[in-house]
């Protein structure tokens, strides 16, 4: 019944400009929104039975090491706090994922909250992506300290973000940002990306 209703992502209006910045950089940086990802916030006792139940239900554990991410089965579980995670999945799977998580935790004390529309995601990739983000985050993104599988909540420019290093060979990051801050952050990224534009020949 919802299918015929048009959805608007926070950065839908930025798609052309993000693509243009990617082209202008000659691939040095790649910027794109990854809209409508499913995101469910999970709060529970990491040492309690609910954590095990969630691992069985999702097929991946909720990581207990701070600032790490576990991926598998099309899902990613990001550590947000000692009792808080963000489970990210493909678009359109929120109700199913929320139900699986609620079923798993059962009667134990846990909070499961659909926050899919709370944040949108950006892909920031390319060989200069680390340099681009270094304009705005005090986090050390060097592979020695922020390699694949690492994630963090931090500040980028003046917005709070969740940053995750893609566990792929190519350098790149996912950036989750509150919907109301997304336009600001996109403007900021586009401005920062000007530096990496190939000079007109």
């Amino acid at each position: 019944m919802v299918e015929h209703v048009e959805k608007h992502s926070p950065l839908g209006g930025f798609a052309a400009r993000l693509a243009a910045a990617t082209r202008a950089s000659g691939g040095a940086v790649r910027l794109a929104e990854l809209p409508f990802l499913t995101q469910v916030n999970v709060r529970l006792d990491a040492k309690g039975p609910a954590a095990d139940a969630v691992r069985l239900a999702l097929g991946i554990p909720l990581p207990v090491a701070p600032n790490t991410m576990v991926r598998g089965g099309g899902l990613a579980a990001l550590w947000l706090g000692p009792d808080e995670w963000l489970v990210v999945g493909p678009p359109g799977t929120a109700s199913g994922l929320e139900a699986r998580l609620r079923g798993a935790v059962g009667g134990t004390h846990a909070a499961v909250t659909d926050v899919s529309a709370q944040r949108t995601a950006l892909l920031v990739a390319g060989p200069r992506s680390r340099d681009l983000l270094a304009h705005g985050t005090s986090l050390d993104l060097h592979p020695r300290s922020f390699g694949p599988g690492r994630c963090a909540q931090t500040l980028l420019a003046r917005a709070q973000v969740v940053l995750a290093a893609r566990d792929e060979r190519r350098p790149g990051f996912w950036l989750l940002v509150r919907s109301s801050f997304a336009g600001y952050l996109a403007e900021w990224l586009l401005d920062a990306a000007v530096e990496y534009a190939e000079p007109p020949s």
């Binding site: 600032n67 706090g81 000692p82 005090s138 986090l139 963090a152 931090t154 500040l155």
Partner: peptide, 17 residues
Amino acid sequence: MLLIPCPWCGPRDEAEF
């Protein structure tokens, strides 16, 4: 800008606190 060691996240800039 202090570098404050969060007991969970490790050292982070004061601006995050």
